[in-house]
Design a protein around this nucleic acid. Structure first.
Lengths: 344, 344
DNA sequence: AGGGATGTTTGAAATGTTTCATACGGCGTG
DNA sequence: CACGCCGTATGAAACATTTCAAACATCCCT
C-alpha cells in the first residue's frame, strides 16, 4: 500500500527479510518452510495487504484455475441448474467457474470461446448451438478439454453428458397414451435444435409402436423454446375444431408447456380434463405452476456435476478416455395430466 | 503447433520474418504497421493457430478485460435478468463478464471476492449479503471499483443502483387497499435481507397513512424468498379462521408469491376473489403463471446496465463521483388482484 | 574430525506479452 | 549533396510470479 501500487512478492520479501522464493514457498508449499519464517512472512503479507497476482501466477505456472460453462439459453432456468451442478464440482476442486451465455447465437458462442482460449481456461463445458461446429473440435485438438453438456457430441470426439432425449419423448407420449389419449399434439421447434429433434423423434417412435395412426399425432412447430412460443402454440391448438383437436400435448420443454398451460386456462380449457400437458426438463417452476406440470425430469444438477468431473479427468488424467454417459430421464406425473383423484 | 506447445508471439515473429514488437503492433495498433507486413503477420498467425495469452497481456499491460458480478441468489431469475443487463453493457465495452453466485452465504461471497481481486478484475458489481461488510470497502479502497446492485450502499462509499424498495412496498399495498381489501398479509423474510425490511416498511407506512388499524396488517415471516417458503406461508394463511383471514397478500418477491398462489389454488381458494396476491420483481414467470401475477416491477435489465456503466465510469474516468440512482418501481396489475372483467 | 543426511533458504532463469526509446530507410528540400 | 522528416520496424526492459539447482546450516554417526 506504500505508494499506491499494490504490493508484490518482492515487497513482502523485503518487509519480512527473506528472499522471493521463500515467499512463494509460503504460498505454494508451506510445509517446506520453517514455522517461524512462515509466520514472519504471513504477518508481512497481512500488513501490506498482499494479494497474489493471478495473471503472473498463471503465466509462469502455465495452468489456470478456472473452468468455463457456455450455456445455450440464459433465460431458461434449466441451464442455471446445470451451471449450479458444475459450480459445486468446481468448488470441490478449488476452481473458479466462468459462466457465459450464447443465447443460441453461434457468433456469440464463438466470441466467448475465443476469449476462453485466450484465458487458457483449464476446460470448457458447453451446451453448443451446434455440436458439430468445427471450432469445438479445434479447441479440443489444441489440448483444452471440451465436454458437451445436454447433447451427445458427434463421433466420440469429446466427452459428453446428456439425457436420452429419444427415450424422454417416448415416456412422455407413452404416459399420455396410458391416460387414454388418442389424439396428441407435439409442440416444439425449431428443428435445428438437436434436443427438439430427438424428443419429437421419440414421440413418433412410441406412437407408431403403439399402433396409433400417425395422423393423430399433430406436430405443432414453434420458433423457439419460450413461454411466449408456448402461448402462441396454444392459440393455434385452440383454433382446431374440438372434435379433431388433440386432447393432450407433449411440449419439448417446460417453458413451452407453461406458456401453453397459461394460454389454455386463460381460454377456458380445463387442464387436464380437456387438455393434458407434459413438459420436459422438470424445472422448479414446473412443480410450482398453478396446475402443477407433469414433466420429463432431467437430473439437472447431476448433469452439470458429471460433466465437470469429466472435464477435470480429461485435464489431469493422462489415461483419460472419452465417455458419453447417457442419463435416463424419468416421468414426474403431476396434475396437468392426471385427474385430481389419481394424482400422487 | 510445431511441438505441442502453443505458439507465442515469438513464433509468429520468426515465421513472418519480423520482430516481436511488430507482431504486437499488428494486434494493438494495426494503423502503425504497413499493410504488406501486417498481412504477412496475420497470415503467419492464422497458419500457426496463434492465440494471444491473456495472462501475459494482462500482466504486462496491468489492465484486465473483465468485469464481475456476484449475485445473491442464483435460483432467482431476477438476478439473471440483472446479469443479462450487465452482460449487454460489458459486451458494448468489449469486456468479459465473470458471474459468481454467493447463494446468500457471506463466506461464499468472500471466497469469490478474494478470487476476483487476485484476477485483478476491472470492476466488481455485487448484490451483497451485507452491503456494510468491511471487505467491500476494503476492495474499493484498493482502487477496484465496486458497485452495489439492488441495494443502496451505506455512507456513499460506493456507487449503487437500486429500486426504491420502500416505495415499492407502498404502491403494492396501496393497490390492494384500492381494491377494497381491509385485511392484508405481508409475506417475507428473513429480516436480515435489506430488501425485505424496506418492502415491509413501505407496506406499514402506507397502511398507517391510510388510517387502517395496524392489527389488520398481518406479517407472515418466512425463512427465505423461495417458492417453497411461499407455499408454507400459504398453509399458515389457510390456518387462519376465514372471518379474520386476510383477503390479500403482498409478498416480498415473486417466488414467494408463486408458491403462495399455487398453495392457495390447490387448497381451493379462488384467486383473486378470495385471496388477492401481489408479488415483487415482475420476473418473467409472474406473467406466465396460470393466474397471471400482479407484481411490482423492477427494471431488471436496466438495473444491470446502469450498474455496469457506473463501474466503467469509475474505472476509467478520473473525475468520477459516486452516485446512487434510485429507480422508481411500477405496479403491473394482472389477474391475481383484479377480478376478470376489470383486468386490462 | 570428517562425512553424510536432512531440512531450509536463496538467486537466477523463465513465462508471453506490451511499451518505448531508438534505429532505419526513403524522400523531398534547401 | 547534406539535412531533416516521416513512416516503419526493432530489441531490450519490464510486469509478478514459479521453479529448481545450488548453497547453506544443522545435526548425527562413525
Amino acid at each position: 500500500m506504500v505508494n499506491g501500487r499494490t504490493p508484490s512478492v518482492k515487497d513482502v520479501a523485503r518487509s519480512a527479510g527473506v528472499s522471493l522464493g521463500t515467499v512463494s514457498n509460503v504460498m505454494n508449499r508451506p510445509e517446506v518452510v520453517s514455522p517461524t519464517t512462515r509466520e514472519r512472512v504471513e504477518r508481512a503479507m497481512a500488513e501490506l495487504g498482499f494479494v497474489r497476482n493471478e495473471s503472473a501466477r498463471q503465466l509462469r505456472a502455465g495452468t489456470s484455475r478456472t473452468l468455463a460453462y457456455v450455456m445455450l439459453d440464459g433465460s431458461n432456468p434449466f441451464f442455471h441448474d446445470v451451471a449450479q451442478g458444475i459450480e459445486l464440482a468446481a468448488e470441490d476442486a478449488d476452481l473458479s467457474l466462468f459462466i457465459c451465455n450464447s443465447n443460441g447465437r453461434a457468433e456469440r458462442e464463438e466470441v466467448h470461446l475465443d476469449r476462453l482460449m485466450q484465458q487458457r481456461v483449464q476446460g470448457i463445458l458447453i451446451t453448443p448451438v451446434n455440436p458439430d461446429a468445427p471450432h469445438l473440435a479445434e479447441i479440443s485438438r489444441r489440448g483444452i478439454p471440451v465436454v458437451i453438456v445436454d447433447r451427445v457430441g458427434a463421433g466420440g470426439l469429446f466427452c459428453s453428458v446428456a439425457v436420452d432425449d429419444v427415450l424422454g419423448g417416448r415416456i412422455a407420449v407413452e404416459h399420455l397414451a396410458e391416460q387414454g389419449h388418442t389424439r396428441v399434439a407435439v409442440v416444439g421447434g425449431p428443428e435445428s435444435i438437436g434436443q427438439v429433434r430427438e424428443r419429437v423423434e421419440g414421440a413418433r417412435q412410441i406412437w407408431s409402436e403403439l399402433g396409433l395412426p400417425p395422423e393423430d399425432l399433430t406436430y405443432l412447430p414453434t420458433a423457439g423454446l419460450t413461454v411466449a412460443e408456448g402461448r402462441s402454440a396454444g392459440e393455434r391448438l385452440a383454433g382446431i375444431p374440438a372434435r379433431r383437436r388433440p386432447t393432450a400435448a407433449f411440449c419439448a420443454n417446460d417453458l413451452l408447456a407453461l406458456g401453453l398451460l397459461q394460454q389454455s386456462i386463460g381460454a377456458g380449457l380445463r387442464v387436464p380434463e380437456e387438455l393434458a400437458i407434459v413438459g420436459f426438463d422438470d424445472i422448479e417452476f414446473a412443480a410450482a405452476a398453478a396446475v402443477p406440470l407433469t414433466s420429463v425430469r432431467q437430473p439437472r444438477q447431476e448433469l452439470g456435476r458429471a460433466a465437470a468431473q469429466l472435464v477435470l479427468d480429461e485435464a489431469t488424467n493422462p489415461e483419460h478416455v472419452h465417455q458419453q454417459p447417457l442419463f435416463v430421464p424419468e416421468l414426474v406425473a403431476r396434475a396437468s395430466t392426471v385427474v385430481r383423484s389419481r394424482a400422487y
